[in-house]
């Protein structure tokens, strides 16, 4: 679907926009699953809401004390209707639980990752460590990622969203993130990739994802972590694997 749309030269929505209500465009299978689950449940939610409100309003309208002065004497009990409106919601909840647990466990799965990246949340910036590779000096590749202050923004950059050093990842590769916090709890979130994981000091959390298309994906820290919580954005740039190797080569020098 994403490829079909891109044939029309459209631009993907990979960053939050003012007053946005809907989702950003998906770039990972996990997020596609989340959006589909949301939309499917949303459809039945609307159907059920209409049915329930229709029943409530019609009862209030047809059986009020003016229309039906003695309804209160007879509309007090009904075993059949009690059974229906107890058992059918139970089945609806089960019907929601199955696809939702399926998706939850699918997203938890770490499928033979190609690359492990460590993400550390600090007050108030992110740092990334690519320790699968070592530099010429034998050290691991790591860097900090700070927000670009408003005064330094260049034309086309996002205010409060762009950073100086992006997280670079190869496209179409299973990537494992190991996230942790250095001081307080942070949360690493990138909507387009379906990522949101708490960064807890002293604990390592892992999450797996796959970027389906090249692009720049924006996210923000999602756990109140101090006064500059709103000023530690996340930028993930997905590039082709050869380009990624070129980048890792230049980063290692």
């Amino acid at each position: 679907m994403a490829l079909f749309i891109s044939n029309f030269n459209s631009i993907f929505n990979d960053a939050a926009e003012p007053w946005q209500l809907g989702f950003q465009d998906t770039a990972a299978p996990g997020f596609t699953g989340l959006v589909t689950l949301h939309n499917t449940i949303g459809f039945y939610l609307i159907v059920i809401s209409f049915a329930v409100f229709w029943v409530i309003f019609s009862i209030a309208y047809y059986y009020n004390s003016n229309n039906h002065p003695i309804a209160l004497k007879y509309l007090t009990h009904g075993t059949v209707i009690e059974l229906i409106w107890t058992i059918s919601p139970a089945f609806i909840l089960i019907a929601i639980a199955f696809p939702s647990f399926r998706l939850l466990y699918l997203m938890d799965e770490v499928i033979s990752p190609t690359l492990t990246i460590k993400v550390v949340g600090h007050q108030w910036y992110w740092s990334y460590e690519y320790s699968d590779f070592v530099t010429d000096q034998g050290e691991s590749i790591d860097f900090d990622s700070y927000m670009i202050p408003e005064s330094d923004l260049e034309l086309g950059q996002f205010r409060l969203l762009d950073v100086d050093n992006k997280l670079i990842i190869p496209v179409d590769c299973h990537i494992r993130l190991i996230v942790t916090g250095a001081d307080v709890i942070h949360s690493y979130a990138v909507p387009s990739l379906g990522l949101k994981l708490d960064c807890v000091p002293g604990r390592l959390n892992q999450v797996s994802f796959l970027a389906e298309r090249p692009g720049t994906f924006y996210g923000q820290c999602s756990e109140i972590c101090g006064v500059w919580h709103g000023f530690m954005p996340i930028v993930v740039e997905a590039v082709s694997s050869p380009d990624f190797l070129v980048w890792i080569d230049s980063a290692s020098q």
């Binding site: 499928i111 190609t114 690359l115 699968d132 190869p170 590769c173 694997s241 190797l245």
Partner: peptide
């Protein structure tokens, strides 16, 4: 550089 990491 080889794109390789510890497995599951």
């Amino acid at each position: 550089f080889v794109l390789q990491t510890v497995g599951f």
